[in-house]
C-alpha cells in the first residue's frame, strides 16, 4: 500500500516537472526575443528540475541517494539562475534597441 502511495506521489511530482519543462521548451521555440526565451528556459531549469528531482527522491528509498539528489538541486539552483541572469545582463548592456522589444503590440 505504501509503495503505491509513494509511486503516486512521485508520479505527480514528475508529471508536474515534465509540464514545466514542456512550457520551457514551447516558450523557447515560440518566442523570438532573447529575454523572453531566457525567461521560458529558466522555468524548466529551476521549477521543472526541482519537481523531477523531488519525484525521484520520493520514489527512491535509500537515504544516501536522497541526499545526493538534494545536493544536485542545491548546485543547479545556485548555478543555472546565475547563468540566466548573466545572459540577460549581457543582452541588457549590449543591445541598443532594447526598448523596442518592450513595447506592447
Amino acid at each position: 500500500m505504501t509503495g503505491w502511495i509513494r509511486f503516486f506521489i512521485s508520479a505527480v511530482f514528475i508529471v508536474t516537472g515534465l509540464v514545466s519543462f514542456a512550457a520551457g521548451v514551447i516558450g523557447n521555440c515560440r518566442f523570438g526575443y532573447v529575454m523572453n526565451r531566457v525567461h521560458a528556459g529558466g522555468i524548466g531549469d529551476t521549477q521543472g528540475l526541482f519537481f523531477i528531482v523531488m519525484g525521484l527522491a520520493v520514489g527512491e528509498g535509500s537515504v544516501m541517494d536522497i541526499l545526493k539528489l538534494i545536493l544536485l538541486v542545491v548546485f543547479l539552483w545556485n548555478t543555472s539562475p546565475v547563468s540566466s541572469h548573466f545572459l540577460s545582463q549581457v543582452e541588457y548592456y549590449t543591445n541598443p534597441n532594447l526598448y523596442d522589444h518592450m513595447k506592447r503590440k
Partner: peptide
C-alpha cells in the same frame, strides 16, 4: 562597464561554488 568583478551575485555564488 560590465562590472563582472563587482557583481554581488557572482561573488556570493563563487564564494560557495
Amino acid at each position: 562597464y560590465f562590472m563582472t568583478n563587482k557583481d554581488t551575485i557572482i561573488q556570493k555564488i563563487g564564494f560557495f561554488l
